[in-house]
């Protein structure tokens, strides 16, 4: 299998307390050095709670945010310029809120034509042909083209956004919570559409969500993020049913499931670690019931276990 996307030691630090002259007061690491490979034609799910660095990672992958270090290789070619136009032909981004990712003062046609015109320099006739092709793929009527974004429901708007990403002709889509702003009945429509498109256009997905069940339903493999680092990667069917990292287990047990009694799987006083004052050793240690003395001293490295499991834990399950 060839890699569609390879990320090596990619990290991002943000400066806090910027001053007019001189260095900022402190730095916060939003994404710790992270190494990840997505195979061609695969859907990699990324789960994590708010503040775990999911969106920062996604924005770096499409060139909207310059990495502080590390390397991004798309289809074998390194791209480290943070130039969205260079990234745009190879990797596209589908945003969480479809309504705010469409300019309210442009018609759908103008929105759809932008990537065709600026990334591929297509002629007017070629553009019209391509848009018709894409619209039929995402189940939208062509008479929508002359309307404005506010005339559409969330589900339709998300189809338009997906259509725009397809128009760029990228082989990899980063889907950042693409269905969390939608109602459940519409969510299922969009998830099924994404599966169909993947097959039809031979796409590779990076699917980010906080909803474990949604991620499990669409992914081949799942990576669990905690406090800016990957703590576990494994096949979708196994990650939540047989978690190896204590944090993955906590996530899986916290998700409300029909037929499972209500439990609070951990003490109620716990909070995420403070990014301004990151803990030494394993970031999950304070919430972990299996913590060893070693966990407070050294950060666990990602270690491959078996054929397809990667875990960062000193005392895995």
């Amino acid at each position: 299998m060839t890699a569609a996307l390879e990320v090596t030691e990619l990290y991002k630090t943000f400066a806090v307390g910027k001053r007019l002259i001189g260095p900022p007061r402190a730095h916060v690491r939003a994404v710790q050095p992270l190494t990840l490979t997505i195979n061609k034609g695969e859907t990699l799910g990324i789960v994590g709670e708010s503040g775990c660095g999911k969106s920062t990672l996604a924005r770096m992958l499409v060139g909207l945010l310059e990495p502080s270090g590390g390397q991004i290789k798309i289809e074998g070619e390194p791209l480290n310029t943070a130039d969205p136009a260079a990234f745009g032909r190879r990797i596209q981004y589908v945003f969480q809120d479809p309504v705010s990712s469409l300019n309210p003062r442009r018609t759908i046609r103008q929105i759809m034509e932008a990537p065709l015109k600026h990334l591929h320099g297509m002629s007017k006739a070629a553009r019209a042909r391509r848009i018709a092709e894409i619209f039929s793929a995402v189940n939208l009527r062509l008479d929508f083209l002359d309307r404005y974004p506010h005339e559409f429901s969330g589900g339709q708007a998300q189809r338009i956004v997906i259509g725009r990403a397809l128009a760029a002709d990228a082989r990899i889509l980063v889907l950042d919570e693409p269905v969390s702003a939608l109602d459940v009945s519409i969510q299922a429509q969009v998830l099924n559409l994404l599966s169909d498109l993947k097959e039809k256009f031979d796409l590779t997905y990076l699917f980010i969500s906080h909803d474990l069940a949604v991620v499990e339903a669409i992914s081949d493999r799942i990576a669990v993020l905690y406090f800016g680092s990957v703590v576990e990667i494994g096949p979708a069917i196994q990650v939540f049913s047989q978690p190896r990292h204590p944090y993955t287990k906590l996530l899986a047990e916290s998700a409300p499931v029909v037929g499972r009694p209500l439990t609070a799987p951990e003490g109620r006083e716990t909070e995420l670690p403070d990014p301004h004052n990151p803990p030494q050793g394993c970031a999950f240690r304070a919430r972990c019931s299996r913590a060893l003395s070693q966990c407070g001293l050294e950060r666990p490295e990602l270690v491959r276990e078996g054929a397809d499991r990667i875990i960062a834990c000193h005392n895995s399950l």
């Binding site: 009945s185 299922a188 339903a217 069917i237």
Partner: peptide
């Protein structure tokens, strides 16, 4: 029945969802 069916359920692995067509 259909609303419950179109919500993905944890533990079922990768599967196609039974979406409800149309809009409210």
């Amino acid at each position: 029945a259909r609303l419950m069916a179109c919500v993905p359920e944890l533990g079922r692995g990768r599967h196609r969802l039974a979406a409800i067509p149309g809009l409210p």
